[in-house]
Design a protein around this nucleic acid. Structure first.
Length: 249
DNA sequence: GAGCCTCGAGATCT
DNA sequence: CTCGAGGCTC
């Protein structure tokens, strides 16, 4: 396991938290990457992720390589991120051992952030796939003063704290039920993320590498080595057209 | 306004 | 790694 800096005020860690908060699997704030995160932190504009939602255009444009257009785009991305589902917010907070998987389970069970924050240890460990490590980590996280401040800022800013997406984990439904997909190359009508969501919404599963358990490889433009592997293993290859046809039926 | 350059996103590969 | 968006410079 990697070493981690124990100092809670370690700048490198605070910056990492900002980057992580904005990342694709978390709040998905496009335009906020490593370099901006460093600038925001070092300029003192953002001390914790709660401050992101109070950024003003006039402050932003003073930063390097940040003109009017970029500032507008960023503000818009921040605005949009307020409507994210609870599970994204949970991932974004960067609680140890809480990744996409655990976040979904917690969000689905507790329905809103406050109920998670005040959940009893016993109730948390009851959940499928959630054990004492995660439960303990949650307690640690939510009892910190810093956490409370961040949550307060987020709430004031109007960030959504609730489960939106009524999880459609209805078994035996959807055209892709029981099938495993691998994506390779660039699609024109979907981003990878969208294709993944579409497949999952229809009951399929998306994994990262091709094996004999893979049912379909969806190959876009300039596919990588996954396509070769699929051919070697004799796995069905879908073009983007095949895929859209299937998913619309 | 052209062209350079940086950052971020999305992809691959390991 | 490659590519595109957008800022910066002249």
């Amino acid at each position: 396991m990697a070493l981690r800096c124990v100092n809670p005020a370690c700048p490198a860690q605070l910056i990492e938290r900002i980057i992580h908060f904005a990342s694709r699997g978390a709040m998905d704030i496009t335009g906020l990457g490593a370099s901006l995160a460093v600038q925001l932190y070092e300029s003192g504009l953002v001390k914790d992720v709660g401050d992101l939602y109070y950024l003003k255009k006039e402050d932003l444009v003073k930063l390097e390589r940040m003109g009017g257009k970029s500032a507008d785009n960023l503000l818009e991305a921040l605005q949009r991120s307020k409507q994210n589902d609870l599970s994204r917010l949970l991932v974004a907070l960067g609680i140890r051992f809480v990744g996409e998987r655990a976040a979904r389970i917690l969000a689905f069970h507790f329905k809103n952030l406050y109920r998670i924050a005040s959940a009893a240890f016993e109730e948390v460990i009851m959940l499928e796939e959630i054990g004492p490590k995660i439960a303990f980590s949650l307690q640690e996280f939510f009892k910190q003063k810093e956490t409370k401040e961040i949550i307060h800022k987020l709430e004031e800013a109007g960030v959504n704290f609730s489960l939106l997406e009524e999880e459609r984990e209805v078994e035996g439904e959807g055209i892709f039920e029981g099938y495993t997909f691998v994506l390779t190359g660039t699609l024109s009508g979907y981003t990878r993320q969208q294709a993944k969501e579409l497949i999952e919404s229809k009951g399929g599963k998306v994994v990262n590498s091709v094996s004999k358990k893979t049912d379909y490889v969806l190959a876009g433009k300039s596919p990588g080595s996954k396509l070769n592997k699929a051919m070697e293993l004799g796995i069905k290859i879908l073009s983007e057209e095949d895929f859209s046809r299937l998913s619309n039926s």
